[in-house]
């Protein structure tokens, strides 16, 4: 694993933000923290990196932040009443309604004439891909001005890793002890099909890319959607020190592709360009064998997933060539 990642150490600091014209460095990201010390995130949690960068990026816009958190790990991370670890006004929501509660928040702000607030709805894959997809679809269709972030740890990890629609094939969860048989539901593309102004995928292993995508989203009026793969050391069963590496492996193997769809224009993000366009693909087996959740996976299954990845990469290659999705 280390040998694969070694040469890509500084990948996240590559030119991003379009056709390689803008250079951003980690040092330019605000040092302010809105997730406070003492929060109860697990060691090595990558979802927390995503939330931290979302709040930092929101701060950088000069506007206020209003955070909604679906029923997910990020609620638990706040701590227990009367304490909270989030230093922005935060509304915790029921499972299915992160997007619809955000609709109400946004409408109230509109009614008060406030245009200086970034509304961020933050929910996990269960709350987005499964139980919350109706509310999400409705909210983005109505055109509310908010950013919906799905942090995807590919299962109901908050409750001990049960299968979700975002679980990849062959992953062992407590409700798929023999491995999931079906594919992962592709919500970013479902969101893109809604024709909303901004859809992106991201991964905290590429923090500048992630940060820039948040900032891009905040600069756009209307519904925005960012889907972030957040490797979970506890549920995926890998060492807590390897979260960033695991995310990079997901991207380098093509298990997760980073891109943006802005006003219908598809754009591969730099870390995925070499994978998709130059075919510089790390075999998927490296990714699968590094995680306990794929324990017992057969060679045939690995082969099947590898095939699936190649098909996906082909789609992304075509999309990159076509540029306009709608």
């Amino acid at each position: 694993m280390v040998e694969v990642l070694g040469k890509e150490e500084h990948e996240g600091m590559e030119a991003v933000g379009g056709e390689g014209k803008v250079v951003k460095w980690l040092a330019e990201i605000p040092a302010d923290e809105y997730v406070l010390k003492g929060n109860s995130a697990c060691a090595g949690c990558t979802a927390m990196i995503a939330l931290r960068y979302a709040l930092k990026a929101s701060r950088a816009t000069g506007r206020k932040t209003l955070l909604l958190v679906g029923a997910c790990c990020m609620v638990v991370c706040e701590g227990v009443y009367p304490n909270t670890a989030y230093n922005v006004p935060t509304l915790d929501t029921a499972f299915a309604c992160t997007a619809s509660m955000a609709s109400g928040v946004e409408a109230a702000l509109k009614s008060f004439g406030r245009r200086d607030v970034n509304v961020i709805a933050f929910a996990g894959d269960g709350g987005t891909v499964d139980i919350g997809i109706q509310a999400l679809s409705g909210a983005v269709e109505r055109g509310h001005n908010f950013l919906y972030v799905c942090y995807d740890n590919e299962a109901y990890c908050n409750t001990g890793m049960q299968r979700s629609g975002a679980t990849p094939p062959c992953a062992r969860t407590t409700t798929t002890p023999g491995g999931k048989r079906e594919k992962k539901k592709d919500v970013p593309r479902i969101m893109a099909a809604h024709g909303i102004p901004y859809v992106a995928t991201a991964c905290p292993s590429y923090p500048i890319d992630l940060y820039e995508k948040f900032k891009r989203a905040f600069s756009i009026e209307g519904p925005k959607y960012i889907h972030i793969l957040t490797p979970c050391p506890v549920s995926w069963r890998f060492p807590t020190s390897k979260g960033v590496e695991m995310g990079k492996l997901a991207v380098r193997t093509g298990m997760w592709t980073l891109y943006e769809v802005e006003h219908g224009v598809f754009r591969l993000s730099p870390p995925s360009r070499r994978v998709v366009l130059r075919g510089d693909v790390v075999p998927v087996e490296k990714y699968l064998r590094a995680q306990g959740r794929f324990n017992g996976i057969t060679d045939e299954e690995v082969e099947r997933i590898q095939k699936m990845v190649y098909q996906e990469l082909e789609w992304f290659k075509e999309a990159a060539a076509r540029r306009k999705l709608w």
């Binding site: 299915a96 309604c97 955000a102 109400g104 702000l109």
Partner: peptide, 11 residues
């Protein structure tokens, strides 16, 4: 849910 969101903002 939207009512709850809005009322949580004081609406």
């Amino acid at each position: 849910a939207a009512c709850i969101g809005a009322a949580s903002m004081g609406a």
